[in-house]
Structure formats: C-alpha cells, structure tokens
Design a protein around this nucleic acid. Structure first.
Lengths: 244, 244
DNA sequence: CTGAATTATTGTCAATATGACGATAAGTAT
DNA sequence: ATACTTATCGTCATATTGACAATAATTCAG
C-alpha cells in the first residue's frame, strides 16, 4: 500500500443489494421505483450511501431495512462485487459495492409513502431487456444471477431460498427456477439426500397438500451457521447444471 | 439507490493486489516491505489509492506497475472483494478493493530505490502465522488463496500461472502447488487433456529436459481472450481437489 | 555404446456417480 | 372406491474417477 504525498481523493460509496427470491416458480428480484432524478421513474436496485462509521454489510442491512421494512436479514447475504467509481452515475463518480441476498419470499413494504416503492419482479423480464434498470444495475443484476446460479452448484446455498424446513420438491423448485431448467425429481432427490453434509431429515412430514406427504428437511449442521444461514463452502460432489 | 438529503460521506479508496505465482513448486505472493508508519517494516500487499478519474482495474494495474516495474499485466487480473471501510487502518476509514492476479513467475523491481522493496514470498509462511502482514492483509491473502484454489477447480485459470505454452506436468505442478496436494500424473493428464475446450495441443514438444519429451499445450481458443488470458467461465467437468 | 534412471503417455479395471425411466407408496379429489 | 397427484425407491446402461500396470522416449552414468 503506497501512500500518496497529498491527501487522497475521496469517493462517495454506496451499497446496492440484489435481493433474489423464488416466487411462483420463477426467480424474482427486489427493485424500487426511483422517485427522483436521475433515472426518475426507472426501476433500480435498492441501496444507498455508506455512512461514516458504517461497514459494508451493515450499510446493506440498513438500506434493506429502510426500503423494504424487514427488521432482520431474511436470508443469506454476501458481497458480490464492486463497480466504478467511473461512468456509473451522471452526477459524478460513485463507487458501489454490490451485495447478493438469497432469501425466501418475504413481504416488502409496498405501501409506498413518499419513499421508493419496492416490489418483486421476475428476473427474466429484466435480463431479456424488456425492462431497463437505472445506472449500471442491469449489469450488476446479470452478475448477481450468474453468481447465484453457480452458487447452487457448489454450495448448499439453494436452501437459503427456502425457509427453515423444506421438502426436496421445494428445494428442487428453487434449482429449477434459478437455473431455468427442468430437473428429474427422482435423480434430484437421490443427489440432494445423498450428498453428505447437505441435508438433515427432521423426521417431520408435510400434510394437507395434494399427493403423498413429503419428508421435511433442514440444512445439515455443518452447512449452517448459528443464525441458520448456510455457511459450508462446498457441496461435494457438486450438483451440476445439466447440458453445458 | 436512495439519495441522502445532505452530501454523502466520502471515503478514501485503495486497491490492494494479491499477486500469486508458482515458484519452486510452491505458491508465492508478491509483498512489499513498508518503509513508513503505520506498520513500518512490516510486509504488506502492494496497492495504493485510487485516483480521481480512475477505474478500479486501472488503478490496480498502475499500482502494480509502480511497485514492481512490470509494464503490462503479466497474467489474469480479477477483482477479489472489498474490505472496510472500518477498522482497517489506524489512520482512519479506508475502503479497499482487493484484486487477485494469477501470473507466471515474473521478475520484480527488487533494486529498492526509496520505493518499497517488492519480492515474492511463499504463501505458506504467511498463512501459517510465521509472518504477520500489515493492516488486514493477512485476511485478504487468505481469501485470495481460497479463491485461487476454487478457481482451479471450476475454471481454466490454472493456466494463467503458466506461460503461453506449457506441458501437462507444468500445469499439474501448478495445481499441486496451489492446492498443496499431490496429484496422480496419469489421471491428471487424462482429465486435463480430456476436458473439452480446455487445452489445445500445439504440436510442439519440449526438448533437453530429463525424461521423455512432453507435448506443449496452450489454452484452447474458447478459454482465452484476445490477450491470451483465460476467460471461459467454467471447466466442465470440474477438476476437483481430492479428499474433501 | 549400453544399461539405468527419468519423465510422458496410454491403458486397464473396479468403484462410483449420472441420466433415463419404471414401479410403488401414500396422500387428496370426486 | 377410483382416479389423480406427488414422493420415494429401484434398475440399468453409461460415464467418470481413482488406483495402478505397462510402455515410450528421452537424458545420464559408466
């Protein structure tokens, strides 16, 4: 780390959060509608400036709370990548540290006061160009989705989209939504339950749904932190996407 | 992206570069000796402040050039992660965007003028606590090494440690050094050459070394950019580390 | 010049993982 | 009761993996 003779340039730093969830068997992203210029009326990722004395993750959690009303992080939060500082904001250089949140479907503060209105949008409608996001958020979203897709292969993070307990079919629906492919239920069942250190049978079953009741699983102890969030780095063997 | 009513806090932003290479069958990292406080005399990652009008990668390349004398990026450079801004530097809040460089062994400007003296150090000596780095650079290095290790599994990036052309044994030596394991030469040969879109036979052979001459390979076209740097995201099937 | 040593490369074989799909189990809907 | 729906277990051919034998093509030691 070289130190400049004169005071270094300082940059405004923001965090942006790509919150992903699975709704109606499709991958959705949490977006807000901008009420001010630039990009007024456009959809954008939730986020905002990092305040003095604040860490990056801390800032992300605060912004998420401010814009969606959630009191605690509802899933797995990790840093994605930083972008900038140049050419991102017409008002000037801004460095942003993008974060990725993988969470079960949670309700957002949709009763828009004069704050930005936040809501879930299918990722497909954004990635295929039908909806253009503000700033470079389209690119950030694309990077986030690719990260999520590969995380499902090599980590137990797919479970972050489910609640505390879930069935194999629910987990499979997550994989299908994120990867955009159909998976054979029988082979998926074998691989998910057969992967050592991934899932743990709770002994409980679903009831009331159509069809045979399904066993409820949770993440295995090695795969979750004290907070219940998945931590174990790798899934071995990996659950690879078909085809490619 | 919420906009604060008053001017947002601005932070000094640095880039730090974790330059890794393989020397004498061991993973090495490029470190500089700090000549000023804080952490005077301690080893640290090369890096420095991002200047106004500069991008993150651009700043990394500039700092690398300033501190090692290389004129061009000698390998694969990618962003690692951002750290901070709190609790990293005793002088105050500094956000740093760490970068990872995977490169063949290259000579560094070791004739220390009054600039920091840069040199290669075996990663093992640092990770096992024998050498303490300045700031939070020990943690950054640990993250970088873990990233490199998993990159070798899922991407063709192992080749970034080799030159333009290399033998399978040289590539295997990279894997062994980075993973810290021994690999069966015959099985590695089969997997490396059998992976579609990974390697390309140049038709040329080594000569003069002990033992049977080895075929020289290069990265397949799909796996490298115009600059010759590996780009193809995934290696399929992956080359997994043994054991775990 | 010859055999020993060294390294590269091809092959073999059993164990394991994978993809495709059949069969059965255990519920709800009619 | 019968149909329908979903979960779960099983089977089988094929592909991949790890362990290791065999062979090829050099340099090195004498």
């Amino acid at each position: 780390m070289t130190d400049s003779p004169q005071a270094p340039t300082r940059f405004p730093v923001t965090v942006d959060i790509v919150a992903l969830t699975v709704r109606d068997n499709a991958l959705n992203v949490l977006l807000i509608t901008r009420l001010i210029e630039p990009f007024r009326g456009r959809l954008a990722l939730p986020g905002g400036f990092v305040l003095a004395g604040e860490g990056l993750e801390e800032a992300s959690i605060r912004e998420l709370a401010e814009e969606t009303g959630v009191e605690r992080v509802p899933g797995h939060l990790e840093q994605l990548q930083s972008y900038g500082p140049q050419g991102r904001d017409p008002r000037g250089d801004v460095l942003t540290v993008a974060h990725l949140l993988l969470a079960p479907d949670f309700p957002v503060l949709s009763a828009g006061s004069d704050a930005e209105h936040a809501a879930w949008y299918p990722v497909g409608h954004v990635l295929d160009g039908a909806t253009e996001l503000a700033f470079d958020h389209g690119r950030i979203l694309a990077d986030a989705v690719e990260r999520a897709r590969s995380k499902l292969e090599y980590s137990p993070l797919g479970a972050a989209f489910c609640g505390e307990e879930f069935t194999i079919a629910q987990l499979r629906a997550v994989y299908e939504a994120v990867w955009g492919t159909r998976l054979d239920p029988r082979n998926f069942h074998r691989k998910a339950t057969g992967n050592p250190g991934f899932l743990e049978d709770t002994g409980r079953m679903t009831a009331g749904d159509a069809g045979r009741p399904a066993a409820l699983f949770r993440l295995a102890a090695q795969a979750r932190s004290a907070a219940g969030e998945p931590v174990r780095a790798v899934l071995n063997p990996p659950l690879m996407r078909p085809n490619s």
